[in-house]
Structures are given as C-alpha cells and as structure tokens.
Amino acid sequence: MPEAPDNNAPLLTLQGVHTHIGEYHILQGVDLVVPRAGLTVLLGRNGAGKSTTLRTIMGLWHASAGALRFDGHDITKEQTPDISRRGIAFVPEDMGIFSGLTVQENLRLAAIGGRFDDKRLDWIFGLFPALKRFWLRPGGTLSGGQKQMVAIARAIIEPRKLLLIDEPTKGLAPAIVDNLSQAFLELKAHDTTILLVEQNFHFVRALGDHVAVMDDGRIVHAGSMQALSNDEAMQARLLGLHAGAVH
C-alpha cells in the first residue's frame, strides 16, 4: 500500500536520477525537490538536461537509476498515462498542438470524457481571453503565442496537481509574455504547483518561489528565487556562462 501523501512534504522529489537516451548519459544523478503550491524554476544552459528532466518525470523517458516520487507515490517505473492520471500535465517546448484540429477540439481531447466544465472553461477564458477569438480556428493557423496559450489551456482544462512547462516564452512577443506571467500568477493563487524550464531570467525572477540550476546533467544549485535575485555575485557564478540566454 502506498503511503498517504503528507501535505507538508514536497510534491515531487527526484533522488539520484540518471537517464540515458541511447548511448548518451544525459541526467547524471539529479536531486530535485519541488515544494507544493509554488513555482519552481529550472535554469541552465542549452543541453544541461532540463528538458530531459521534465520528460523523465512524465515517463516519456525512463530513469536508468534513481527514484522519482510524486505526492506519496513512487512513479519511477510508471508509464506516461498513469503518471498523467495522478495529476501531472506536460507542456512541451514544441507545444504539441494538433494542427488540423480547432482550438476547441484540441482542448476537448484533454477533457475527461470530452466534456468541458463550463465554470472551469470560463476561468481559462479569463486567463487567456484571446482563446475565445480563435476558438474555432485550426491550430495550424495560430501564431506561436496563440499556440502557447492553447497548449497551457489544454494542460489545465482539468485540475492538475503539477504542471511541467518547457520554455514557454521562447520566441514570443512581450505582450504574450506578460499574459503568460499573469496566468502563472493566477495558477499559483489556485494552489497549482508549477515546474518551469526557462532561460529568460527576468521573466522568472518575478514569478519563481524556488530555483534550481542545472549543468552537465546535475543540479548544481537549489534555493529560493528571492535569494538568487538579490545576489548578483551568485547570479554571475551560476548564470554568468549563460548570460546571453538568461539575463
């Protein structure tokens, strides 16, 4: 029998996680703690292992060693559909929109039984008012920012305990980034835990509660976002090699 979840315990923990993709050893002993009801940011240079970490949590790639524990359950060897049913949603960097389906159809695929909860749908429209305007447009005709809205809306069309979001602001206009920022604040206010991979440090420093920095497949720093934001020396030490990407 699994242990009952402890509401004071972290929602997600990775302990000594290694992930191989073919002959490549990507994650090399990742230790990561994601507290409940906040936003944890995963920073690091391209190729550090951030996206692989999200995909390993989601079961798209399986850990070759180590353990992953979510909400009191060992999910190390679980398959992606079972992990999803535990309340985890993943928004990949490429957004994963079905180009030939309308926005409505994209969201309906993620709704239980294909049925929308009207109150929740209205709440999502409040987060992303533009969704109403292109509700019946095919996904393939949308801009990058519009696709990102659809991808996040699809992830939250049902209540989730944890959102895994990979590089949401990449290539987006400032107005769309501002919209995403407000949406993430609203999700945090509704006790949704978010693990966010991002390279735009100015974007995440105002949103993040916790931060972890990856390098070469390992976590090299973990702490509060406020501490990192207030310490320029720490920023230079941890992020200086990637200054063009995260500052």
Rank of each mutant, 00 (worst) to 15 (best):
K132P: 02
L131H: 01
I157C: 03
F116Y: 11
V150A: 03
A130W: 00
V177G: 05
D191W: 03
L121Q: 12
L142R: 04
R160E: 12
R115V: 13
L131C: 01
S99N: 15
G96L: 06
W135Q: 06
T169Y: 10
L185S: 15
R108Y: 13
I124V: 08
L162P: 06
G100S: 12
G139L: 09
W135H: 05
I156D: 06
A173K: 02
E167A: 13
R137G: 05
E105P: 13
R108T: 14
P129H: 00
P138W: 07
K170F: 09
L109A: 14
V150L: 02
G96I: 01
Q146F: 02
S181T: 12
L185K: 15
L127K: 04
I156P: 11
N106Q: 05
F128A: 01
F98I: 11
T102Q: 07
G145K: 04
I97T: 08
T141S: 15
G139R: 08
F128G: 01
T141W: 09
T193M: 08
G145A: 07
M95V: 12
A173I: 01
R160G: 09
P129C: 00
W135R: 04
S99D: 13
L121M: 11
N106Y: 06
D118R: 10
E158Y: 00
L196T: 14
K147A: 10
R108Q: 15
G113F: 08
M149I: 00
D122M: 05
L109H: 08
F125M: 03
D122R: 11
A130F: 01
L109W: 09
A130M: 08
L109G: 10
L195I: 10
E158H: 06
L127N: 05
R160A: 11
R108V: 13
Q148L: 06
L195W: 09
K188Q: 10
D118Q: 12
T193W: 06
G139Y: 10
F125D: 04
R137A: 11
T141D: 14
G126V: 00
L142D: 04
L163A: 01
G144L: 08
V150G: 06
G139I: 07
Q104D: 12
L196G: 08
A173C: 03
G96C: 07
T102G: 11
T169K: 12
L121C: 06
G145N: 05
P129M: 00
L131E: 01
W135V: 06
V177L: 03
E186Q: 14
F125Y: 13
L180K: 02
D191G: 04
G96M: 07
T141C: 09
T193G: 09
L127Q: 07
K147E: 10
V150T: 05
F116N: 09
D122A: 14
D118F: 04
P138G: 10
L136D: 15
G171S: 07
G145L: 02
E105T: 13
L180I: 13
E167C: 10
S181G: 15
K132C: 00
K132T: 07
G113V: 09
F184M: 15
F125T: 00
L101Q: 15
I112F: 12
L107D: 05
L127D: 05
T169V: 13
